[in-house]
Nucleic acid binder design. Structure first.
Lengths: 173, 173
DNA sequence: CGATATTTGGTATGGTCCATAACAATTATC
DNA sequence: GATAATTGTTATGGACCATACCAAATATCG
């Protein structure tokens, strides 16, 4: 597959190599045939994922949160008192790569590392008040602007079916 | 969201920070709560995408093809005589990044750049005989090992519904 | 107890992918 | 025929991912 983030200079959908295709009378090199590509799970999946992330970023742009950061805040809120290793591995983040991420969140006063008294090796992660507030606002934005759009596009039932299938793939494929 | 490729050193599913969870009698720090994370479209989507790519790579490992390379070969076969810009932009690949990719495929004698006689700036892309043969084998592997697995997992009808929804997201989100 | 192994957070580093700027050669435009 | 646009390309930087390694703290076991 392939699918990068900012499709050429052209419009949104990358599948139009040609310019301002309308129905004008230009010599216009006709559009390419996607062919079997549109049946490839990985291709469509990646395309969809990029679009969703892109939309997510726009929706929470005012809070300056990436999908990854949002997931960290969500998980820390739901599981306060856990250490870096636990949070990171649950999200599939490798511990070394989690350090800079936490440095960022901590520098913005969204979460805090606390030396555990039981095990003085580990850092307990906790959301700051600001972190909780930002997360609350992020949730609202995501719910009303981002996830709601799926319902408009697919309908409630289909949206749930989609999530269920994706979860199944993520867990059993 | 987040989701890296090789979840920690632990097993497959990243959602088990703890070790060999069974039902033994260890002090074992209980598993984390995913919470609202499992309802986040982007999170589940990314997770699924990583799993699918991972499986794709395994299925065509004998041919040494990445999803991106596979998509290029597919598109060139379906649209012979197109130049680099057209193929790249259709796939959402930026032209500068497409150069090294083609260098690779060409060095393996899977496709060829041909100077166009009409426009001597552009390179026409064509699959070599070896390229066609490799692609044919890849298709077979993908169909029988990769895509077939989706049917086993979701069933034919659901698989088609999933692809349709993903395509809709990719195009209209 | 004390030697050894393991775990935790962290640093350093390299790879891959993605994005932008710039350039020469060629072609289009006026 | 001068200027603009296009094509393939190089160079470069950023983001993300993965591995090896380290010191401090803890666990394990003789």
């Amino acid at each position: 597959m392939t699918v990068s983030k900012t499709a050429e200079k052209s419009s949104g959908k990358p599948a139009d190599a040609a310019k301002g295709r309308k129905d004008a009378g230009e010599p216009q090199a006709e559009a390419l045939q996607l062919g079997e590509l549109s049946e490839q799970l990985g291709y469509v999946l990646k395309r969809a994922q990029l679009k969703v992330f892109e939309n997510f970023l726009r929706c929470v742009a005012s809070l300056q949160l990436t999908p990854a950061q949002f997931s960290v805040l969500l998980l820390v809120e739901k599981n306060p008192g856990r250490n870096q290793t636990e949070i990171a591995s649950t999200l599939g983040i490798l511990r070394p790569n989690f350090v800079a991420m936490l440095d960022n969140l901590e520098s913005r006063d969204l979460c805090t590392r606390i030396r555990s008294t039981n095990d003085r090796r580990s850092h307990i992660l906790v959301l700051t008040d600001k972190g909780k507030a930002v997360l609350a606002r992020a949730k609202k934005l995501v719910a009303t602007k981002h996830e709601a759009r799926l319902n408009d596009l697919l309908g409630q039932a289909n949206r749930e079916a989609l999530l269920a299938m994706l979860a199944k793939i993520a867990n059993e494929f």
